[in-house]
Computed example of a mutant assay.
Amino acid sequence: ARDDIDAVYIPLPTGVRSEWVIKAAQAGKHVMCEKPCGIDVAETEAQLAACNEAGVQFMDGVMFMHSKRLDALRETLTDGSIGEVRRIHSAFSFNGGDDFVSGNIRMHSDLEPLGCLGDLGWYNIRFNLWTMEYAMPKAVSGRMICGAARGDSPDQVPVEFSGELFYENDVTASYYCSFITANQQWAHVCGTDGTLRVDDFVVPFFGSEAKYTVSNTESNQHVCDFNMEQRDRIVSVKEHANAHPTAQEANLFRNFGDLVLSGETDPKWGEITLQTQQVMMACLESAKQDGARVEL
């Protein structure tokens, strides 16, 4: 292995990625891995085992995990602004169109067998886990609403999928991901005293600020008059979108690079990758059973 390369970024299709993650780790290279990291839990476990054995850093490429907005969101979730979290919703989709369906690698079951669930749902599930401070759900359910494939694909892949996560204390989370509905990437956290809404939780809207909205709507009734008072507060964080040095994508590689140069590995990144893969595969197993509840 070359001694002038410390780390590698592996964006290969999921169907062939695991072999190269393991080879990179065995060669002593730190690994930035695209998501979904494996086609199943066993592959992801094998990748992490190889990295742990070699003493190299593993991190998946979820950009929003490195946005400064997350720090502000966590503060809002814990300072009483919305009370106790009871429900989490999110949606991430884009309409790829006919050319996408007929030619993109994400429509080939040998290359990207998890379809929209792996490509988009990974972000939904990660946001749910992050909101719950990485507590695992006790059970999940999932439904493949629609499947499709390009002409040379052996099988269909999910192109529209929804899932439900069930936590202790009756907290629930739902998500929707799709290759066939319009651009959306919102997340909504409902608490006992208010709500939190992020309209662009995956890729921030173009600009110099990353924002979210805290709502504490008041309802006042006098006889038959029902007055709903909108009480919104916008929280913004100075952080540019796209390729700016302060963007979350730049932060991702900066944070990864800092770990590589520190000489010490942080196991949390592999742990949350494995959690995400476990939840995702349980949702897919549920979908294969027509939405039956799968225990974790």
Rank of each mutant, 00 (worst) to 15 (best):
K138P: 00
Q221M: 07
L196V: 06
G80A: 03
P13H: 05
G83F: 01
A7N: 04
Q156I: 15
A173N: 06
V8P: 14
L196W: 03
E249C: 09
S219L: 14
E285A: 05
S81P: 08
Q278H: 02
D98I: 13
F94I: 11
W122R: 02
T44D: 03
Q57Y: 01
P137S: 03
V223P: 00
M107C: 13
A287L: 06
K268F: 05
M107N: 00
A25P: 14
Q156L: 09
S81D: 10
A243T: 14
G96T: 07
Y175F: 15
G207S: 00
L70M: 15
D152S: 10
G15L: 06
L120P: 05
V31A: 03
L261C: 10
D290H: 09
E285Q: 12
A287N: 00
D40K: 03
L296C: 09
Y175L: 13
N95R: 15
I105S: 06
M32N: 08
T172N: 06
F58Q: 08
L111Y: 09
P267V: 11
M32Q: 08
G151R: 09
V21N: 06
W269G: 11
T172I: 01
R106Y: 08
E45T: 04
E19S: 06
F201R: 06
V62M: 14
I234E: 14
W122A: 02
D193F: 00
R126F: 13
L259C: 09
S286R: 06
E19N: 12
G80D: 07
V85K: 04
V159R: 05
F253A: 01
S219K: 12
F256D: 08
Y9I: 15
G103R: 11
Y175I: 11
V101N: 01
E285K: 08
E53G: 12
R231G: 03
T172R: 05
V85C: 03
M228D: 08
G83I: 15
I82W: 01
L259Y: 03
D232C: 03
V157R: 03
N220V: 11
S219Y: 07
I180P: 06
R293P: 03
Q248W: 00
A50N: 07
A247P: 08
P267I: 13
R2Y: 03
R74K: 15
S178F: 01
L129E: 01
C146D: 05
E264R: 15
V189C: 03
W130G: 07
A139P: 07
V260M: 01
K68A: 09
Q278C: 11
C177T: 11
L12Q: 10
D71R: 04
L296T: 13
